[in-house]
């Protein structure tokens, strides 16, 4: 994959990697917290992209897996003293189980498209309401992890400074990028693209579409739940109303859609653009001196509207071509953009 990208792009990537590595030395805490947020959404976007961008299954309920991941790890930590790394295993298993149930029900009963999307919302909302009443996990009052001031970073228990969390999230996001890059070079990666493009034609080529879609859901839900584990230990509190909210699901998918669905760098670029946009608008409002609750979101929504209307394939494919990072795949009289894995 990287070998197919031209030297110019590789150089840019190396510079970016270097910048990310030394960021804690050159940035203040505020910038660092924004960076953590960007990496967080780059990671979850990458995870969601496996299901939608690669395999074509639109999930609008990914907050479900964040929530299950977060609650599993937090519950094990608070109630049984099990650290986040052990908890992560349970979190991933639990999320994959839920993903498997949703996937099995949907794909066995032939539910696709809009109906599948609504099914994922329904499961997320159902779970949210369930956690709202689960006293053992604090119900709607919230579930809290103990917070203590520490002298040193305890990586084993994920207790420590923002810098430690920054590096953990950077590692996760990088691993997700590498993992997805690898996935697209495997047989299943090709099969997913085939299913995304035309399920019936894929089946005629001997692809077991049910199995492939299940694998996509399992990988995507498992990856997403790790973000939940991070969320729990970074923020130290979990509220069903917040973590399972449909708004969170939408936040997860905005990045890849704005950046470019089905591409490897789209989710990362999208997450960065959205965070900078939100910050930029806040800054702008402060400069102008307007302080109205909601004005920021109106701008945000308007930008989304414009991007969706004028860059239907996302920002990354257009940007990559403009900057000459990928070689153009050739003339395209139909006007369709090739969603090449690199692009």
């Amino acid at each position: 994959m990287f070998s197919q990208i031209n030297p110019r792009a590789r150089g840019l990537l190396a510079a970016l990697a270097l910048l990310l590595l030394i960021l804690p030395w050159i940035a203040n805490n505020y910038v660092l917290s924004v960076a953590v947020l960007i990496l967080y959404f780059a990671y979850t976007g990458q995870a969601w992209n496996v299901m939608m961008g690669f395999c074509g299954q639109l999930s609008l309920g990914h907050s479900l897996y964040v929530g299950i991941g977060g609650y599993s790890a937090a519950a094990l930590f608070v109630h049984f003293g099990i650290g986040p790394w052990g908890g992560a295993l349970v979190a991933v298993a639990a999320s994959m189980l839920v993903g498997a149930i949703i996937g099995f029900l949907a794909f066995r009963f032939g539910i696709g498209g809009v109906y599948f999307a609504l099914l994922t919302i329904a499961f997320a909302e159902f779970t949210r309401l369930g956690f709202d009443h689960w006293q053992w996990l604090g119900a709607s009052g919230g579930f809290f992890l103990p917070v203590k001031q520490r002298e040193f970073n305890d990586l084993l228990n994920l207790r420590g400074s923002p810098v430690m969390f920054y590096y953990v999230m950077l590692a996760l996001a990088t691993a997700a990028l590498a993992f997805c890059t690898w996935l697209l070079r495997t047989r299943i990666g090709y099969y997913w693209l085939a299913i995304r493009e035309d399920q019936q034609a894929a089946q005629a080529l001997g692809i077991n579409t049910f199995r492939c879609k299940m694998i996509a859901v399992l990988i995507s839900s498992g990856m997403t739940s790790l973000a939940g584990v991070f969320f729990a230990f970074y923020y130290n509190n979990l509220f069903p109303e917040q973590i399972f909210n449909m708004g969170r699901s939408i936040e997860i998918i905005l990045g890849p859609i704005i950046g470019g669905i089905g591409t490897l760098f789209g989710p990362i670029l999208g997450a960065a653009l959205l965070a900078l946009l939100a910050d930029g608008i806040t800054e702008l409002m402060a400069q102008i001196g307007i302080e109205l609750p909601g004005i920021k979101q109106v701008f945000y929504g308007s930008c989304l509207l414009l991007v969706t209307m004028f860059l239907p394939n996302g920002v990354w494919p257009a940007l990559a071509r403009r900057l000459g990072l990928v070689s153009a795949p050739g003339p395209d009289p139909a006007g369709n953009t090739v969603r090449h894995p690199d692009g």
């Binding site: 090709y190 099969y191 693209l193 085939a194 995304r196 493009e197 035309d198 034609a201 894929a202 080529l205 692809i207 795949p329 369709n336 090739v338 969603r339 090449h340």
Partner: peptide, 12 residues
């Protein structure tokens, strides 16, 4: 598979 290259179509 309209969005994929001719070669990738056959590779699949």
């Amino acid at each position: 598979f309209a969005g994929l290259s001719v070669l990738d179509n056959v590779v699949i």
